[in-house]
Design a protein around this nucleic acid. Sequence first.
DNA 1: TCCTGACTTGACACGATGTAAAGTTGACAT
DNA 2: ATGTCAACTTTACATCGTGTCAAGTCAGGA
Lengths: 196, 196
Amino acid sequence: MSSNKPDTRTKILESTWKLLETTTGDDVRMSDIAKEAGVSRQAVYLHFPNRVDLLIATTRYLDEVKDVDGRLAASRSATTGLARLDAFIEAWGNYIPEIFGVAAALLAMQDKDPAAKEAWSNRMQAVREGCEEAVKALDRDGRLRPELDADKATDLLWTLLMVHNWRQLTVACGWTQEAYVDAMKALARRMLVCET
Amino acid sequence: MSSNKPDTRTKILESTWKLLETTTGDDVRMSDIAKEAGVSRQAVYLHFPNRVDLLIATTRYLDEVKDVDGRLAASRSATTGLARLDAFIEAWGNYIPEIFGVAAALLAMQDKDPAAKEAWSNRMQAVREGCEEAVKALDRDGRLRPELDADKATDLLWTLLMVHNWRQLTVACGWTQEAYVDAMKALARRMLVCET
DNA sequence: TCCTGACTTGACACGATGTAAAGTTGACAT
DNA sequence: ATGTCAACTTTACATCGTGTCAAGTCAGGA
């Protein structure tokens, strides 16, 4: 909230972010973060009670800096359901690579730590709401496949857009970001939208 | 390979399997496994050099007992590409819940341990091959969407069938196993198959 | 000057993995 | 009966990362 603090806290958050982006997830120790921030390990514990909370705070920090909410909200301004679906997929799909490092770290702790699970599922809930709105817009236009109800359609779209799928297609299969976004748009249409 | 050993080893594998199924992934310690198997912790290390290798061995054991290869191979006997696609999705999709406990544990260690990553990616490679064969069968029938080449189509089908997506839809969204399999079949068709 | 808050330093407890070494036990051959 | 061998147990310990604790430094403000 406030911003005048002499930001050791911010330095720690930035360092965590940087390390999670460059190295692979779990080999980022508290001492690594401290070193990167040019601060003692204990100083980190002075600002964050434990590793999980630090990671969660880092994602929140990232969201703030990168303005997810703003980006996702922008897709709401589209007029037709189809345009809205496209806009949402584009906004979220292009956000994923920017947060992937941190997201992966949080994801990796899910089974280990309930707090991490909670944090991640909160964030995914926001995505789900975006999916739901897009689906409802489609439905209003009468373009939602009749065999799908809004809930099931939302589940499907939400699943399609999971970070894991982005990772699989881009990182594992080597697709470009554009190819990924285009494929997701096409897929979502085939999945949810009926003719005419 | 052999089978006449007085199976302490098997007891350990069974115990690991059981614990991974009942509890949630990461809180299964070596000592828990030993206790469950009615054996000392050191006995476990006598049979498996470390935790990762034990988990990997457990998945192989599971595969053997449950006969994945046989099940996936069965889908090859289908005549048309469409039937083959359906059969493959059904075989794999219904296999997932049986191995999910162990799979999730292995999945959780992926970022931590390169051996776990390797083991999992080996197993997923087999699934990918099944996807590829189904896609090729479709292609031979002239039913593969013209805008997709076989590689991209395989990537998409492979991604669709990932364990993560099963988990999301069934565990997180509460879908039944049947609903999941049906949805995957329908989705795969819309994704890959062209009209006529 | 003294106080306070932010940070450092160094030590330590804990839990889990993995290693090492000596002891027990039961089957089996001679 | 004796000796041997393999499988397993018991106990102890090294290591690593997290998190806690307590004492010390240091700059800036009342």
